[in-house]
Structure formats: C-alpha cells, structure tokens
Amino acid sequence: MGPETNKRQGMSMPAGPTAKPGKVRIRRFGLPVMVLLCVLLTWWLVSFFHLFPAYAMPSPGAVLNSFKEEISAGRLVNDIIASLWRVAIGFVVSACLGIPLGLWLGQHAAGRQAFVPMLNFFRFLSPLAWIPFAILWFHIGDKPAIFLIFMATFFPLVLATMSAVATIPKIYFRVARDYNYKGIELLTKVTFPAVLPQVITALRVSYGIAWVVIVAAEMVGCQDGLGYGIWEARNGLRLDSAVCYMITIGVLGMGIDRLLAQLTKLPDVRWGYER
C-alpha cells in the first residue's frame, strides 16, 4: 500500500508547471497586456499619421472622450443593463426549455428521430433572419431582442444536451440500477450530472452566440442597448462613440465568458475537462 499511496498523493496535487510562480504570472498577465499595448500603439500611430482619413478611423483620444461623454450622460450604463437584461432573460428561458428537452430527446430514440431534422433546420437558420418576424410579433422594446436571443441559443443547447446524453457511458445507468435510482432521481442524480460538463461547454458556446446576436438584434426594434448604441452612433455620424460601444461589448463579452468559465472549475464537473 505504501508506495501506491505515495504515488497517489503526488498525483492528487495540482499538476502545476515547475517554473517559478513569478515567471508564470508574467507569462499569464504580462504577455496579453503587451499584445494589447501593441494594438493600441498601432491604432494610435495609424490615426496620428492619418494613414486613414479621420472619418474612417477615429483616434484613441476621441474614443476616450466619447467614453467620458457616454458615461456622464448615463447612456452607456443604461445600454449595458438593457443588453445584459435581454441576454439574461433570453438565455435563461432557452436553457430552462432547451436543457430538459435535450435530456428527454437524448433518452428517447423515437423523439430524436422525429425532432432532430427540424431542430437542425432551425439551428442553421441565422437568428438574424428572424428579425422581421421578431418585430412584427413583438413590436419594439425588449421582447423582440429576447426572442432573437432565444432563437439563437435554444437549438444549439437542445442538440448539445441531447448528444451529451446519447454519449453517457452505459455503465452509469447500470450502476444506477444496482443502487435503485429511478425516474426523476435517475434524471437529476445520474443523467444530469453526467452531461453537466458538456452542458456547461454548450452554455458557454451559446452564450457567445447570444452576445453576438444581441448586438445585431438591438440594431432594429430597440430604443436602447449596446447594439442600438452602435447603430445610433452610426446614424449620428459618430464613429468614435461607435468604437467606444464596440470596446464595451468586447470587454463585457470576455468578462462574462471568464465568469462562465468559473463553472468548469467546480469539483463535480472537473472530471469532464480532465479526460
């Protein structure tokens, strides 16, 4: 037992690189910051030497100014909240409907055969194609955007959950039978945790879609939101403020994805990412 236990304890430690922690930190944070600075510098140089005409390439200074302007007018914050609200609602609704449907389809071959072609059809239909209908059915405001987010995320989520269920090793269900898991308990205690890592990955992917779609969705039929902000800046011939919205969208999207990535660090899904 002795040698085996020792070996195991060695393995149960996080498999970190042997480099010094300081060096790791530099590589982890220093390099991206350097790349960022390079991009900013290039941008500044391009606008400083007028490589592009000013109307086609706003300068970093102008963008900074419009940041100040948008924040002090309270519009930026309002737009951020509007976009986040729409994404959150659309996303939660599609997860609440899509994941259970995916679980059910994953376990019923007949259901799969019946629904998968239709689901695939809708998945390949760009959510933006729904814009005219979203506006016709839901008029203007939050609803059409939420509908578009739903259309964008529902089908990928269902299909991902379904295929995750279909690939659960049979052995788990045998074990579940040995220990008398049945019905709803089987679903919540075995099937769901078994697909959770893949579902989390699917959530991250479809969140990415949602964030891309919200910007496009808000360009029509909305009165606020980040996408609307870009559209309005464009109508107002203010490319600097459009860039300030673009930066906001990128930073927020990245931040929320980092947040979702935290889910993969939870101990009961960790296994799904280490095999």
Binding site: P132, I135, H139, V220, C222, Q223, E232
Partner: peptide, 16 residues
C-alpha cells in the same frame, strides 16, 4: 428617437 423607418412602422402598428 428611432434608428430606422421599419421600426417606426412597427411601433405605429402596435400603437406604441
């Protein structure tokens, strides 16, 4: 403020 006419039309149809 609206950003395009189709949206205006929709808002008018919905009597918003």
């Amino acid at each position: 403020v609206f950003s395009d006419f189709p949206t205006v039309v929709s808002a008018l149809q919905a009597k918003q």
